[in-house]
Amino acid sequence: MNAEQANNQSTEQKKKKVDSPFKRSAKDFYKKLKKNKSALIGGYLIIALIIIAIVGPFFTVYDPVHDTDYMVKLQGPSAEHWFGTDHHGRDVFTRVIHGLGITLGIGFFATILGGIVGVLVGIISGYYGGRVDSIIMRLMDVLLAFPGILLALALISILGASLQNVVIAVSIFAIPTFARIVRGSTLATKNLEYIDAMRALGASDARIIFKHIFPNILSPIIVQASLFVATAILSASGLSFLGLGAQPPSPELGAILSNGRDFMWDAGHIALFPGLGIMIILLAFNVFGDGLRDALDPKMKK
């Protein structure tokens, strides 16, 4: 008793200023993330891209869709038109800035939508096990059996080509990847003693799932989400490129790229800039996701 008390007192004196629990863990997390330089750069890049996507459209001089000017069509980059103009004489810079928001929006929406469903399905599957688990996971296997883009193609051919349907299609193929990861983590977590202890204290299934299992499997979900945003954006842009997503006047990056393809040899800049945009977004999310994985990995805790 004495030794224990003495020990407690000494640690108490060491950290006199005690932050709130949440602040402490947030600080700890940032410290770890900061160590991983590329992840930090990815994170800042994502923030920068989001700010540009939100604020940018207020500062562009031209309208992305309606400002056609056939006098200046297919012109290369200049002081007037930073990224040049397209075949309708629209300013590519303006279109890319506006497109950034659409593309990021699709990525986030599809990930959130698919993530929510996938997490729910996975957690239920892992928690209840048995027949429920078998049925759900076989369904997920069926979804996973199709290559993502093929599944999206099939869905869009049923639903019709539109931006909204792209989000739905991409989120549907997000479901099995989330479900699998979440199921695995749930299986590992649900047999831990604190879950038994909570049950012994009278907690209901719903309370155990949402209050006790979910926060404990949050880190793989966050990592998967940040990596999936990149996949979603790539798929959505790909679908738009194939003409199945955003329809022509819309400045979605994949759609601009698709338009630019027709003028690849005469005016390569039309395809180049939206392509670069997509590339930077993907790079930022992937690098950030990887860094996040390292920072949230409990095995890396010192």
């Binding site: 003693e193 038994d196 202890a197 012994a200």
Partner: peptide, 11 residues
């Protein structure tokens, strides 16, 4: 009920 393993019995 209290359990055997105090190290893992708390969330």
């Amino acid at each position: 009920m209290i359990f055997q393993e105090p190290m893992t019995s708390l969330n």
